[in-house]
């Protein structure tokens, strides 16, 4: 269960990107998670909620997870293939020397901040 540590890293990165003078709440944190990034979504969601709920500006933030498929590139065929199981072999020419093009990433991509003026009356 390293999702707790991953969640903490996500929140640390978000905090570094908050505009200084702006203390408006973060609504959404979007992360990109490769299918083979080794992340259990429910555990990450849980870890994120626990830490966010105690972090100023992130108390109500939602985690939005975007999953990227596992795509390999065969240098011999010059083509990309999406694969479902982690068998790293070119479906066209059986070459086993393929590269992973996507599917292992773990990135914070963007945050959404509620900057609508606070009600004053």
């Amino acid at each position: 269960m390293h999702e707790m540590s991953v969640a903490q890293n996500i929140i640390d990165i978000v905090l570094q990107h908050l505009p200084e003078e702006n203390s408006q709440p973060v609504q959404v944190v979007t992360v990109k998670i490769g299918k083979m990034a080794g992340i259990v979504p429910d555990s990450l969601e849980f870890g994120f909620q626990v830490i966010a709920s105690e972090t100023p500006h992130l108390e109500n933030a939602q985690l939005r997870m975007e999953f990227t498929p596992l795509i390999i590139h065969c240098p011999l065929c010059g083509k990309d293939f999406e694969i479902n199981d982690p068998y790293f072999i070119c479906p066209d020419c059986n070459n086993t020397n393929v590269e992973i093009k996507s599917g292992t990433e773990l990135q914070v991509t963007e945050i959404e901040i509620d900057d609508s003026p606070q009600e004053e009356s």
Binding site: V6, N9, I13, V31, E110, I111, S116
Partner: peptide, 15 residues
Amino acid sequence: MSVITIERKVLEKND
């Protein structure tokens, strides 16, 4: 609502 683009690896500090 304003969107801030980040694009950073989650485990970059470890790396």
